[in-house]
């Protein structure tokens, strides 16, 4: 665990869907300015954990504190205030099909911060430039973009409001290795420039090694190992070893059904 003050502190988080227990007493701390990556197989509950922190799912039990403030059971108004600290890059980019690219990037500025459209457009074009996209891309529609460009636009949208905390949900999924590496570099660059705290989930080890200060492994509904990037290759944990080396044989048995 880190010694920095906690930006996000998750304690004893429980969540299940019907009879399927997804999170079973999860504990995780993310320090201020720290970049933590949670790794784990498909369906172990990484996205559920993220959605609980974002308030998109209400956990059955447990505590989530942001800057020391409990957010589980928070009123919608207070939740809205906390959400303004967040930026999020979704796995499938989740760009709004009905809006051109620049309006996607400017959405949080206009809707959440009440900024004028022209000013918001200027900032949106700046953010697009930060992720390597020219102003002409701003006039395109999401359907006209490639997978890599969508991820860049989604990254620009995530950092548009200069958030204190950014969440990355599988930032490199569905991209070729080169584009994946470009996105990883952009993530590192943008986060460094903002000085933001980040919590990412991925099963791409190359991505995890590049963007993380610390890696935590989620299995069986709880964090079974956490440590620095340098330590992960010497974890002496059979689960972690099997996962990072991508071996079919080992203690982790992949579930066929979700």
């Amino acid at each position: 665990m880190t010694d920095t003050p906690a930006k996000i502190q998750i304690r004893n988080l429980h969540m299940s869907f019907g009879s399927k227990v997804v999170l079973n007493g999860l504990d995780l701390k993310v320090g201020v300015g720290e970049s933590v990556v949670v790794i784990g197989g498909s369906g172990v509950g990484k996205s559920v954990m993220l959605k609980c922190v974002l308030g998109l799912l209400e956990p059955e039990q447990g505590s989530i504190c942001i800057d020391g403030e409990e957010v589980v059971g928070m009123s919608p108004k207070d939740r809205d205030r906390v959400m303004r600290k967040f930026g999020m890059l979704f796995q499938g980019a989740a760009l709004f099909d009905s809006l051109p690219v620049w309006q996607n990037v400017a959405f949080g500025l206009v809707q959440a911060m009440g900024m004028e459209l022209q000013k918001a457009k200027e900032i949106a074009l700046n953010k697009l430039a930060q992720v390597g996209l020219g102003p002409e891309v701003g006039e395109l529609w999401p359907a006209e973009l490639s997978g890599g460009m969508k991820k860049r636009v989604a990254l620009a949208r995530a950092i548009a409001t200069d958030p204190e905390v950014i969440f990355f949900d599988e930032p490199t999924t569905g991209l070729d290795p080169i584009m994946g590496d470009i996105i990883n570099d952009l993530v590192v660059k943008c986060v460094r420039e903002l000085g933001a705290t980040t919590l990412s989930i991925t099963h791409d080890m190359a991505s995890a090694r590049k963007i993380a200060d610390r890696i935590a492994m989620l299995h069986g509904g709880r964090i079974i190992w956490a440590g620095s990037v340098a330590d992960i290759d010497h974890s002496n944990d059979a689960y972690v070893d099997q996962f990072i080396h991508g071996k079919a044989e080992g203690p982790i048995k992949m579930e066929v059904r979700a």
Binding site: G55, L56, M83, F86, G87, M88, A94, F96, Q111
Partner: peptide, 11 residues
Amino acid sequence: EQIDALSTLST
């Protein structure tokens, strides 16, 4: 996930 994205953008 566009609806989730709306929520994360305080909308």
